[in-house]
Design a protein around this nucleic acid. Structure first.
Lengths: 238, 238
DNA sequence: CCTACCACCTGCAAC
DNA sequence: CGTTGCAGGTGGTAG
């Protein structure tokens, strides 16, 4: 079972509520830690912000626009082609080039972003959330959630298992102010198969007209125990 | 003589402030003389070339393709994102980024062009002509003429008042050869109304389903003394 | 070839 | 209502 995590909110600093209804559902790693000294599943995290992805964020532009308010608040040291590293729920590090586009006066994640989009099979309407370690400045995490209605997906098993993104309607009042919370990341059963990192080379390929994506970083991994891969039909549309 | 308020330049100037290509801009917004020392309508000009605009030239591509032979003859110093300034018939300066697109092997005016298209309400089939001061190298002028048949336009008076294009058929011979000629720029009568510059901000607005465009830079200004605006119905098509 | 990436550009809606 | 954030583009370049 999963539990919530209050990804909460959004913009405002009104941190009056946090949902502490989370039980400590400790996420079992089956997996190795790539990034820091601690297993990523037990790190106390502070939610920074999240964003519902636009078509452009997941499209051919290969970039994520980071809302300026959040960018300037949480990544103040940017501006000159910084590289930021985010650990996903499996502890896999993802490095994104983070920069400022002066012409449009906006902050973006560019290099590396499209790989994450593909590996996590993100689509418009999905949500990514960014958090950071409460104890270690500069240690960042990224998580994502697929939106409920996705067309033309063939998923093995995860449709039933896919939880609702914990930040639905009522949660919006909560959080952004820096509440510390433990984040559970939809535990992946041990021994589910091979866990591959983002740097393991091409982890997606075509097979009989299907795109086969080896994923070690998202909730579907739990469901793809037989092959540690997820198969999604691609018909040329986005 | 008429007064050119040229309210403008605030928007464009601020947009370009952060660009490194910004050179010192001697041009004073509230001034009468934008480019040089003489009123633009009495400058001796040498016609360079003209072009009948294609749908792409006035569409969302926001660029004007400059025919290569004219580009290489008259703007030989281009290629590296030059900025060229053209004064229109009202003396208003228009700055276009001029560059070479290697992918299509063509010369184009990009940045700034779409603003001119909108302000002059150019459509496919209309003609723009480029000329330069006979005495001062590097001082350029732009003029335009609407074609006869324009659909779905409601113009107040300018259909009858539209003068013949000074460089019609027969002039084309002289043009290519570099003949010098004096071009009258249909001086705007004093007190005709407000003359606005290209950068005066939003000079078009919607009123009762019509797009109303205040124009101070084209022939309609002379004819629209009653309102110094032109109304054109927009039905969602382009 | 193609794809990603980089640094620009613009219209428009929302504030 | 003028400013601006940003969604959605572009050409150029590297590989």
């Amino acid at each position: 079972m999963y539990m919530d995590l209050s990804l909460g909110t959004t913009v405002e600093d009104t941190q009056e509520v946090q949902e502490e209804e989370q039980e400590d559902d400790l996420y079992q790693p089956q997996d190795l830690q790539h990034g820091g000294g601690e297993p990523s599943h037990v790190i106390e995290r502070e939610h920074m912000f999240h964003k519902v992805l636009t078509p452009s964020d997941v499209g051919k532009l290969n970039r994520l626009v980071v809302p300026k308010q959040h960018a300037e608040r949480f990544f103040p040291a940017a501006g000159a082609g910084t590289q930021l590293c985010f650990e996903d729920r499996g502890g896999v590090p993802w490095r994104f080039r983070y920069s400022y586009w002066g012409s449009s006066q906006s902050y973006v994640m560019t290099k590396g972003w499209s790989r994450f989009v593909r590996a996590a099979r993100l689509a418009a309407g999905d949500t990514v959330s960014f958090s950071r370690a409460a104890a270690a400045a500069g240690r960042y995490f990224i998580d994502h959630r697929h939106c409920q209605r996705r067309s033309r997906d063939i998923n093995f098993g995860d449709a039933a298992a896919m939880p609702a993104w914990p930040m639905a309607a009522g949660v919006q009042r909560a959080a952004a102010g820096g509440a510390t919370m433990a984040v559970d990341t939809t535990p992946v059963p041990a021994g589910h198969g091979i866990e591959v990192g983002p740097t393991a080379g091409a982890r997606s390929f075509r097979l009989f007209g299907f795109n086969v994506e080896c994923s070690g970083d998202d909730d579907d991994a739990a469901a793809s125990a037989s092959a540690s891969a997820e198969v999604e039909y691609v018909d040329g549309d986005s």
